[in-house]
Amino acid sequence: MIGKLIRTDFMKIRRKGIWFLTVLGPFGVVALQMVNYGLRKDWFIQQDIYSWFYYIRNVIAFTPFALILGIVILTSFMASIENETNAWKQVIALPVTKWGVYLSKYTTLAILLVVSTCLLTLFSLGFGMFLGLDGGIPYLDLIKYCFYTFFASLPVLGLQLWVALVSKNQGIPITLGIFGVILSYMAYFLPDWLIWKWPSLDNQWDEPIINVCLGLAVGLAIYLVGMIDFMRRDVK
């Protein structure tokens, strides 16, 4: 049943520009580096940081905002598909479970974000190779950091999806999303327990894997809370 639901969800996001944004997001992140390296290449060389190591750091410095904004936009789009014409009553009156509907929305979004993350890895690799950075290409590190950021942001995905699906006025999840972006922008100042800090992969122990584990565990918990709340709500 979940398979069928996901297929219908992918059908419903046609012509909404969602795929375009999925590609634009990672492209935008790398484009910012194009500008960055285009303008300051000499400075990087001068400072002796014209290497893959610093390049990857630069890329993943911007990824958290882009990812969180992407999550805000995609979840709101996903909710608007049913909210706009109040199609929930049609979907839930089909022989499907409510948790199935919720899981399908979540999975569809997760798939889109994984596609984005893969593209981010590819685009970063491509531009890095074009730059001819110093040192060997650290394929594993590149993949690792791109996907770490994704896993660490799963709690934000769970929260935004929950709020977007239950809000009639999409201004609410989007305002919450703006808060999230600002928090992730200030990640350096935030305490380690705030979910918006996690995508920065920064913590007091300097172990990014902790953020990944927290992301997965808390992400699952928030997902479950959101799903249970969605299930007990009446469909108007």
Binding site: K4, M11, K12, R15, K16, K89, Q90, A93
Partner: peptide
């Protein structure tokens, strides 16, 4: 069971065929 509750639900950006296809997939 088939149902139509109050004002019709639809996805405006999809065609009539695609709208029905989203439901057909579920029923199989």
């Amino acid at each position: 069971v088939g149902s139509l509750v109050e004002n019709p639900s639809y996805y405006p950006h999809l065609t009539a065929y695609e709208n029905l296809e989203t439901i057909r997939k579920i029923y199989g």
